[in-house]
Design a protein around this nucleic acid. Structure first.
Length: 342
DNA sequence: GACCCGTGGAA
DNA sequence: TTTCCAAGGGT
């Protein structure tokens, strides 16, 4: 691992921020100002999610709920509808809870330090550092995937970034490098660097504004960084989806459990099956609907079943209009699309 | 520390 | 088609 002297650190800050001021992504909507609410919403949306995907969601969300008080007062259905399709829905519920803490419990007085921000639901080490540095000028490194990638190459850090304890290694190495005058810009500059000249695949290191600081490139081993172990592939789960209409043509839904995958969302009743030999109704499609989550792959066979009249506690019929108003997970939209086409 | 939690784009 | 992964956090 490389160790920079004070002069190198100061030169790096200057070169990095000079480039950032010239070529940084200052057009991103959440960079219009450093209102902590805007920063928090954007950071929650950006967790494990691409910038291009988030932009539309962010603008829509801020238009509908411009202040932390608006979000705190909003019904959860509205928050989830605004989040619909973005995934990782616990982020939306945590953001909602965090807004209630700030607006109600703290009466609008934002936590400003890294430690206090950490206490908000949905705010972990990265997000606390991002909000603290960008909105409140706290001098802390916001260590995300970009940060790992950039500094693993610059400093030739060999630790596996997939392991939680590696965060400490990076923190120790980089905390002294964060620019104390512009910590928020420093962190965002690293992110911009990590998605451009120093991106994951096909980086353009030769034209990087910090080429001279890149130890991995200097040694011809840049393609070996960052060190990261692979994830496991999703396991297959097979279901039949019960398609059941009442006399009005409303469609039967079932509310999912309060915990676990797609917690509290409405979908068609899903029943696990070992094979399509077990299908209990009229098979509606030749091929199954498939949907991949981060750790599971669903294979879904829609089957038409008779309306028995009796409903379980967690079941309800919804009209077309009611379905349109619900926040539904992507997999349910896929099922609806398939029913429309068959 | 290991596992859980969504989605869409790229190669 | 398959695989990887993108501004992580909760349990």
């Amino acid at each position: 691992m490389e160790k920079w002297d004070q002069q190198t650190i100061e030169n790096f800050r200057k070169d990095l921020l000079h480039w950032y001021d010239k070529e940084g992504r200052n057009h991103l909507p959440w960079r219009k100002n450093t209102d902590p609410y805007r920063v928090l919403v954007s950071e929650l949306m950006l967790q494990q999610t691409r910038v291009d995907t988030v932009i539309t969601y962010f603008n829509r969300f801020m238009t509908a709920l411009p202040t932390v008080q608006d979000l705190a007062k909003a019904p959860e259905e509205q928050v989830l509808k605004l989040w619909e399709g973005l995934g990782y829905y616990s982020r939306a519920r945590n953001l909602h809870r965090a807004a209630k803490v700030v607006a109600f419990d703290l009466k609008g007085a934002w936590p400003k330090s890294y430690e206090d921000l950490l206490t908000l639901p949905g705010v972990g080490p990265y997000t606390a550092a991002a909000v603290a540095s960008i909105a409140f000028h706290q001098v802390v490194p916001a260590i995300d995937g970009n940060f790992f990638r950039v500094f693993s190459r610059l400093l030739k850090i060999d630790d596996d970034i997939a392991k939680p304890k590696t965060r400490r290694v990076f923190y120790e190495a980089v905390a002294p490098i964060v620019d104390p005058k512009r910590p928020g810009d420093f962190n965002q500059a690293i992110m911009d660097l990590g998605t451009s000249y120093m991106k994951t695949t096909d980086p353009d290191t030769l034209h990087s504004p910090v080429l001279t600081y890149n130890a991995a490139y200097r040694d011809g081993v840049e393609d070996q960084y960052p060190v990261k172990t692979k994830k496991k592939k999703p396991i297959l789960q097979r279901y039949q989806a019960l398609v059941r209409y009442n006399e009005e043509g409303d469609l039967l839904y079932e509310k999912r459990p309060q915990t676990g995958l797609l917690a509290d969302f409405w979908t068609l009743p899903l029943r696990p099956i070992a094979s399509i030999e077990e299908l209990e109704g009229v098979q509606l499609t030749v091929k199954p609907i498939t949907h991949v989550f981060s750790h599971r792959k669903w294979e879904i066979w829609p089957v038409q079943v008779e309306d028995t009249g009796k409903l379980a506690d967690n079941q309800r019929f919804f009209s077309a209009d009611e379905q349109a108003a619900l926040a539904l997970p992507k997999v349910q939209h896929k099922i609806l699309q398939e029913l429309k086409e068959s």
